[in-house]
């Protein structure tokens, strides 16, 4: 879905519409692996998940199938805070990541065009973190942000943090971790649209007496919108379900638990599969709604 945004240059849509209408068995045959893949790895697990979410649990821990709608009510009732918090954190991380990524992508994609070497070098820098395990990087941040670490000591020295305040285990650390970990996902799609931005549009805009800000708002942003939309989706969707950053072993604490942690605990520690399955479906559903509304509103619904 969002991936099409990378190639959304406009234009090819018309050609696709004009595809031959006659039935082609070859085409169907070629689709077969894709369909099989979807059925095997999406439809079957999804159905299994829905069935699990409706199971009942006897006091001694055994599960049996029952049409237990109550699971949804109970789990949303118990973990409503965590659901809200997940979306709040994810939106916050997406916005911050966008604020950091856009100027960066603009610089690499537009300003650095004159120096191809610098351009590739900076792209490598954006992608470089992927060469190190995501878990290791997050653990490293835990050490850097720890109470005896350089950041907290410096902030305390500047009296920006109270003597008993700390960063790890607090919501700020989790949002920081989410932002940090997803910035490349935001930066790369924006870069691909800005990289193809035709400078002549900007010149035309200034010929028509638009100032720098107006040009940016009326020309640059609309032209890079497909990149922004796919970048925000690639950041928001995984961030909402993330359970690593908010885990107590990484940057989170009990006051910053996200829904992913709740699902993990229910699936793996408490072995309460119905609740975990119900929460997974709720999470999926809410993300679907949020994303559809967002894409519709941003006027790029051809992405979906």
């Amino acid at each position: 879905m969002a991936i099409t945004a990378f190639g959304a240059g406009g234009g090819p849509a018309a050609a696709v519409d004009a595809a031959p209408k006659r039935r082609s068995w070859v085409a169907l045959f070629l689709l077969l692996p894709g369909i099989l893949y979807l059925v095997l790895f999406f439809i079957v697990p999804l159905v299994s998940l829905i069935i699990t979410s409706l199971e009942t649990q006897s006091p001694d821990g055994a599960f049996a199938y029952g049409f237990q709608w109550q699971n949804y009510v109970d789990s949303v009732g118990t973990f409503g805070t965590q659901i809200w918090r997940s979306f709040f954190f994810a939106i916050l991380a997406t916005v911050i990541a966008l604020l950091f990524s856009y100027p960066l992508a603009y610089f690499i994609g537009v300003k650095a065009r004159r120096w191809p070497l610098l351009q590739s070098f900076m792209l490598i820098l954006v992608v470089a973190p992927f060469f190190i395990s995501f878990l290791l990087r997050t653990l490293a941040w835990k050490t850097i942000l720890s109470d005896d670490g350089p950041v907290v000591s410096a902030l305390k020295g500047l009296s920006l943090l109270g003597p008993q305040a700390h960063i790890t285990g607090e919501p700020i650390a989790v949002v920081f971790g989410l932002t940090y970990n997803f910035i490349p996902f935001m930066c790369l799609p924006i870069y691909t649209t800005l990289e193809r931005l035709d400078i002549r549009y900007l010149e035309a805009s200034s010929d028509l007496y638009a100032g720098g800000w107006a040009t940016f708002r009326k020309v640059t942003i609309p032209l890079s919108l497909p990149g922004i939309v796919s970048g925000t989706l690639l950041t928001f969707i995984p961030a909402a379900g993330d359970y690593v950053n908010a885990s107590q072993d990484f940057l989170g604490g009990t006051s910053s638990t996200m829904i992913g942690n709740v699902i993990q605990s229910n699936f793996l520690v408490q072995e309460n599969y119905p609740v975990a399955a119900a929460l997974s479906i709720v999470l999926m559903f809410v993300i679907l709604v949020v994303v559809s509304v967002y894409v519709k509103r941003s006027g790029t619904d051809d992405l979906l």
Binding site: S255, T257, Q270
Partner: peptide, 20 residues
């Protein structure tokens, strides 16, 4: 603990860990 107790108590305890 009996199985029933284990489930009940563990779910209470994990609830605290999750801040619920």
């Amino acid at each position: 603990l009996t199985n029933a107790e284990q489930n009940k108590y563990n779910s209470q305890f994990q609830g605290v860990l999750l801040g619920a």
